[in-house]
Amino acid sequence: MTEPCSEAGCDRSAAVRLHVPWADERLVCTAHARVLARQDGVVAEPLGDADWE
């Protein structure tokens, strides 16, 4: 089972966990991860099958 992207108005499935030092972790789609991970300190971790078990 997959989670939806946590960004408002997005209907894609989450594929990346973003570790954001100044906020909570977020599960986002690849499109949002590409933009958000450019911020200093943000770490993008691709989700694998084990994350959904």
Score class of each variant (00 low, 15 high):
residue 1 M to P: 14
residue 1 M to C: 13
residue 1 M to F: 13
residue 1 M to T: 13
residue 1 M to E: 14
residue 2 T to Q: 10
residue 2 T to Y: 13
residue 2 T to A: 09
residue 3 E to M: 10
residue 3 E to F: 13
residue 3 E to P: 05
residue 3 E to Q: 07
residue 3 E to R: 11
residue 4 P to Q: 06
residue 4 P to C: 02
residue 4 P to M: 08
residue 4 P to E: 04
residue 4 P to L: 12
residue 5 C to D: 04
residue 6 S to D: 04
residue 7 E to P: 00
residue 7 E to R: 05
residue 8 A to H: 09
residue 8 A to N: 08
residue 8 A to Y: 13
residue 9 G to S: 04
residue 9 G to P: 11
residue 9 G to M: 08
residue 9 G to Q: 04
residue 10 C to M: 05
residue 11 D to W: 07
residue 11 D to K: 10
residue 11 D to R: 11
residue 12 R to F: 10
residue 12 R to Y: 07
residue 12 R to M: 07
residue 13 S to G: 06
residue 13 S to A: 11
residue 13 S to V: 01
residue 13 S to Y: 06
residue 14 A to R: 00
residue 14 A to F: 05
residue 15 A to V: 13
residue 15 A to K: 12
residue 17 R to D: 06
residue 17 R to Y: 01
residue 17 R to A: 12
residue 17 R to S: 10
residue 18 L to T: 05
residue 18 L to F: 03
residue 18 L to R: 05
residue 19 H to D: 12
residue 19 H to T: 06
residue 19 H to N: 10
residue 20 V to S: 06
residue 21 P to M: 12
residue 21 P to T: 00
residue 22 W to C: 07
residue 22 W to E: 15
residue 22 W to A: 14
residue 22 W to K: 12
residue 22 W to F: 12
residue 22 W to H: 13
residue 22 W to T: 11
residue 23 A to N: 12
residue 23 A to I: 00
residue 23 A to T: 06
residue 24 D to E: 14
residue 24 D to V: 10
residue 24 D to Q: 14
residue 25 E to K: 13
residue 25 E to N: 14
residue 25 E to H: 12
residue 25 E to Y: 04
residue 25 E to A: 15
residue 26 R to C: 06
residue 26 R to I: 01
residue 26 R to V: 02
residue 26 R to T: 03
residue 27 L to T: 08
residue 27 L to H: 15
residue 28 V to R: 01
residue 28 V to M: 03
residue 29 C to E: 06
residue 29 C to I: 06
residue 30 T to V: 08
residue 30 T to P: 00
residue 30 T to K: 07
residue 31 A to D: 15
residue 31 A to G: 09
residue 32 H to C: 13
residue 32 H to N: 07
residue 33 A to H: 01
residue 33 A to M: 04
residue 33 A to W: 01
residue 33 A to D: 02
residue 33 A to E: 01
residue 34 R to C: 04
residue 34 R to M: 11
residue 35 V to Q: 03
residue 35 V to C: 00
residue 35 V to L: 11
residue 36 L to W: 01
residue 36 L to N: 01
residue 37 A to D: 08
residue 38 R to G: 15
residue 38 R to H: 05
residue 39 Q to K: 03
residue 39 Q to S: 02
residue 39 Q to H: 03
residue 40 D to K: 01
residue 41 G to T: 00
residue 41 G to K: 00
residue 41 G to A: 00
residue 41 G to Q: 02
residue 41 G to C: 01
residue 42 V to H: 02
residue 42 V to F: 00
residue 43 V to S: 10
residue 43 V to N: 05
residue 43 V to A: 12
residue 44 A to K: 03
residue 44 A to T: 04
residue 46 P to R: 11
residue 47 L to E: 09
residue 47 L to C: 09
residue 48 G to W: 05
residue 49 D to T: 09
residue 49 D to C: 02
residue 49 D to M: 09
residue 49 D to F: 04
residue 49 D to I: 07
residue 50 A to D: 15
residue 50 A to N: 03
residue 50 A to V: 10
residue 50 A to L: 13
residue 51 D to V: 00
residue 51 D to M: 02
residue 51 D to P: 03
residue 52 W to R: 15
residue 52 W to G: 08
residue 52 W to E: 08
residue 52 W to N: 05
residue 52 W to C: 04
residue 53 E to L: 12
residue 53 E to G: 15
